[in-house]
Design a protein around this nucleic acid. Sequence first.
DNA 1: ACATTAATGAGACTGAGTCTCATTACGGCG
DNA 2: CGCCGTAATGAGACTCAGTCTCATTAATGT
Lengths: 131, 131
Amino acid sequence: MVLESTQVFQRNTAARGKVLQAIERQTGHFTAEDLSQQLPGVGRATVYRTLGVLTRSGYLCKVLLGGNTLHYQVSPEEHHHHLVCIECDRIVDVESCEVADYARETALAQGFQLQRHRLEVYGRCPSCQIG
Amino acid sequence: MVLESTQVFQRNTAARGKVLQAIERQTGHFTAEDLSQQLPGVGRATVYRTLGVLTRSGYLCKVLLGGNTLHYQVSPEEHHHHLVCIECDRIVDVESCEVADYARETALAQGFQLQRHRLEVYGRCPSCQIG
DNA sequence: ACATTAATGAGACTGAGTCTCATTACGGCG
DNA sequence: CGCCGTAATGAGACTCAGTCTCATTAATGT
């Protein structure tokens, strides 16, 4: 997803540009604090605010990992599949998606306007099965 | 899922019994603080610790809602499907599951031992579509 | 009944996230 | 271009969910 920032923000500022650049540099999941530390010139509050705006707009999504800190990641196109290890919190991304049809029907059945869906499969990863 | 507490805890204590009872009284999602307030006789730390144990054991699972506070809910048998409104955070539970096979295959393909899966479908709920 | 040690709970502590408010600067308009 | 309204900023105070500590209590095996 290429972000057309004018659609999301009311004004285009230097600070938000830097936050967006930093997000693009991330690989996988990151926290607000990660970003903030990588952006000494940008206020912490601004980082949090920008993440909020981007999440509400759908560009980012929240991810729930083992700890209690909120993680973010750039939303995959429409769906978003993970294998999560319940032992070590390792995450493997899953490319394929055979759930899209079912997600659409489910949303429709309740009158929801579908935006996207996410499947998380929990289990024990190969290395944690040894213990 | 009926919890055989001796399997999860090393000792059966009054405090944990009360926490379990309180969890059974909850309908849907709840936070650690919710429980703590309903259990004046039980220390806050104990509530948090017990929730941790129960989550690790699979009896509870974490749920990510709109705010930043962690919510819990009793794990449905094996899977766990939600329609989440991106506007108002309303959650509709979905009973049916046509994803189980796919989840099993996906886990297997990466050598994961499947424990359970969760599908979350995001969209705008009927009342939020009006605005 | 006793010893071992898991579990408790009061309260201090941490740190993620929010709020406030004076200041800055984006962008529309004359 | 310069002006204005107001969105956005950022320093820092604040909140409160969640963790840790440690002295005390009590569940279990023998």
